[in-house]
Design a protein around this nucleic acid. Structure first.
Lengths: 120, 120
DNA sequence: AATAATACATAAGCATTTTATGCATAAGAA
DNA sequence: TTCTTATGCATAAAATGCTTATGTATTATT
């Protein structure tokens, strides 16, 4: 398909999502047993009610990197004559998920201390 | 001073802070009338109890950019024979602060929907 | 006298993301 | 039946934003 005139995907107009993609992928795969790339984009869109749309140009390199780091394993399947690469979280991936979620919680806490110091 | 052997600054070990610096600067200047660069680094360190240390290599270019965009204005003063560049928020800067804080709140909400869907 | 703190600045390199493509099959609409 | 949309993967150039590593200069502390 020609995408010349249909490219409208983005991570959101805000730059804050930079650095969050790995956390999102790991968390989804930590609780969903196995998922393929396209499925992840749809899941994220659904969970965020269209707020957040992951671009393929960001997603696929990120998945490859996580696999290379041993945090995900991959299994290729053919469904309806179409290729799917199913990703599964590894043991190390589970540990890293915990780390990433801790970092996210810490980030939120720190930012709230900065922008809303009365509540901190 | 030689920094060859004393360079230990960072934005935190987490990559999540990427994209947050502008928000932090604007918010601080929105509530503090005027501040200079070094003061900002110290204030952030204090408010986050050492959690977050802004590097000069990130801060100064960010301040210059905000000034170029008309969100900050600058006034140079000499104190104790040392140069200080005081930054003040402009009217447009105040509007942008509101936008950035809204984006931060939205980001936090969206991420919580992703990593903790039960609470969303 | 040497080191740490204060105060600015820039530039190379790195990681992540956007933007823009490319290929291919299946389903739905015109 | 032909065009478009949806499904599914991929990569590469460019932009972005930060880290790392410097540089200069003054004042305070050890």
């Amino acid at each position: 398909m020609h995408k010349k005139f249909m490219y409208i995907c983005f991570m959101s107009n805000s730059k804050l999502y930079k650095g969050s993609l790995t956390t999102i992928i790991l968390k989804l795969l930590n609780e969903n047993d196995k998922m393929y790339g396209y499925e992840i984009t749809q899941k994220v869109k659904a969970l965020t009610k269209g707020q957040l749309k992951i671009t393929e140009g960001a997603l696929y390199p990120a998945l490859h990197k996580l696999e290379a780091e041993g945090l995900l394993s991959v299994e290729v399947k053919k469904v309806d004559n179409r290729l799917r690469k199913y990703y599964k979280i590894t043991e190390n991936g589970e540990k890293e998920t915990t780390n990433k979620l801790d970092e996210l919680a810490e980030y939120i806490k720190t930012m709230q201390a900065l922008v809303n110091p009365k509540l901190a």
